[in-house]
């Protein structure tokens, strides 16, 4: 009898939930001014105007910034991870300080530091890559490197100790064993979190909007913001958002698949 009443009760809760959801939907339809919403965020004409530039310039630049920052971050992260695991104490200190500093600072502050403060202070001009300024890429790589260093370190530590011992017993030096045996296995373990890092980095390229990039070097967010200002309309932001999702959603699906496969492999 207790079980029966419990079933009836959960049934009542479900009916109530549907009713509530229906009421909210009805209220939205009646209360929201759909015409104004559509005019401000989904203007077909303005939407069409964003193309092809939003793809051929903005999305392209976003991807290029992401890829170079990722590769740079990977190099920094591997270097810092190896320093972090070094038997030489000052190296470990340096790595720990590096990781704490760049994870502790807002990425935006690092971008402003590398993009404005350092060029002003030292009078240096960063080179360009594929026609894009590298200051933002460097800043993002420094930040991403700090996060990746911890991921890579965890990966290296997850490789069984016997692997290093087997390599050393064959006469390989410590660094040779690391390079040929341990690090390749570590990267297999950390492909899912690294892909996740890639998604985060892609979204962080939006911060480069503060660098006041020119017409040809804008990434998606700056492109959309300029579009909003020019049209006095929110549609370009919606278009940019859709393009971000076109890139990030498949990537996160890949991460989920990789994680599932890793779990099964164990």
């Amino acid at each position: 009898m207790a079980a029966g009443s419990r079933r009836r009760r959960s049934q009542r809760i479900r009916v109530a939930s549907y009713l509530l959801a229906g009421l909210v939907a009805l209220a939205l339809v009646l209360l929201v001014d759909w015409r104004t919403l559509q005019a401000n965020f989904a203007d077909a004409e303005i939407f069409a105007e964003q193309f092809p530039g939003i793809v051929t310039v903005a999305a392209r630049n976003t991807v290029i910034y992401t890829v170079f920052a990722f590769l740079g971050g990977l190099a920094v992260g591997l270097g810092v991870a190896l320093l972090r695991l070094s038997s030489i104490r000052p190296y470990r200190w340096f790595a720990t300080i590096y990781i704490e500093v760049f994870r502790g600072l807002p990425a935006l502050l690092t971008i402003i530091l590398v993009g404005f403060a350092i060029p002003i202070a030292l009078g240096v001009r960063f080179p360009t890559v594929l026609g894009l300024p590298t200051s933002g890429i460097i800043a993002l790589a420094l930040v991403a490197g700090a996060y990746m260093a911890e991921t890579i370190r965890a990966g290296i530590e997850a490789v069984p100790r016997g692997q290093m011992e087997a390599a050393r017993s064959l006469g390989m030096s410590h660094s040779r064993s690391m390079a040929s045996i341990v690090v390749p296995q570590a990267f297999r373990i950390i492909i899912p979190p690294l892909t996740n890092e890639l998604v985060l980095l892609l979204k962080d390229t939006a911060l480069l909007a503060v660098l006041g990039t020119s017409t040809t070097t804008k990434e998606l967010t700056k492109f959309a913001r300029d579009g909003v200002n020019a049209n006095f309309n929110g549609t370009p932001i919606v278009a940019a958002g859709l393009l971000y999702l076109v890139i990030t959603v498949p990537l996160t699906r890949v991460v989920a698949q990789l994680e599932k496969r890793n779990r099964q492999a164990r």
């Binding site: 069984p160 016997g162 692997q163 011992e165 087997a166 390599a167 050393r168 017993s169 064959l170 006469g171 390989m172 030096s173 045996i181 390749p184 296995q185 297999r188």
Partner: peptide
Amino acid sequence: VDDVRRRIGMVFQQFNLFPH
């Protein structure tokens, strides 16, 4: 020690083959 180790083969309980 690397030079000496290449003259000493070692076989482990857990095999320790390189899985990759």
